[in-house]
């Protein structure tokens, strides 16, 4: 509650046109976040080349199903309860879909924050990072993404451990 109040105050403070950032409007169903500079570079990895991997993930629909499945499993997993306790799952789903779509060269823009600031206060440990990897692997498998294609996405996500795991 205190967080959303602070966010509301921040939103009001920064709502003046002089301070407006490209993503300062709050999509329906999401909580407001402090303004930040929107950039594809925030996705934390450059897109793969070609369209083949995007197709292997069954395009936008496939990515959408994988992320919905992943976020649902995240909410059920006791290993991740603490980390995602204060998360805005509506926003998480949207930004994750954007991030995966951007990295898989699906032609999306990533409008979320960078990996370092998103995870700065979460105190993520390696075991939690790995737990999320396992849930993502399972979600990709349920979508029918070939294991070799799964690994090509994981190869892009793996170095993000350096910025997300902080203790």
């Amino acid at each position: 509650m205190r967080t959303s109040l602070a966010c509301a105050v921040a939103t009001i403070l920064f709502a003046a046109p002089a301070f407006a950032q490209p993503a300062s409007h709050v999509p329906p169903g999401e909580e407001a976040v402090d303004p930040y500079a929107v950039s594809d570079a925030n996705a934390g990895a450059a897109p793969v080349g070609g369209q083949e991997l995007f197709a292997a993930f069954h395009g936008h629909e496939g990515i959408s199903r994988i992320v919905d499945d992943l976020v649902e499993q995240v909410q059920k997993d006791p290993r991740l309860t603490e980390i995602f306790k204060a998360s805005d799952f509506v926003r998480l789903r949207r930004t994750l879909k954007e991030q995966f779509c951007y990295i898989l060269n699906g032609g999306c823009s990533y409008t979320g924050r960078d990996m370092k600031s998103v995870h700065a206060d979460h105190g993520v440990i390696t075991a939690e990072f790995n737990a999320l990897v396992e849930l993502l692997q399972a979600a990709m498998a349920r979508e029918g993404v070939a294991f070799s294609a799964q690994n090509r996405l994981l190869a892009k996500l793996a170095p993000m451990k350096r910025e997300t795991v902080t203790r």
């Binding site: 294991f147 070799s148 690994n151 090509r152 994981l154 190869a155």
Partner: peptide
């Protein structure tokens, strides 16, 4: 005996 060992996982090619 002593040894040095190096391991690399190339996830991109599994």
């Amino acid at each position: 005996e002593t040894y040095a060992t190096a391991t690399k996982i190339l996830l991109d090619s599994s």
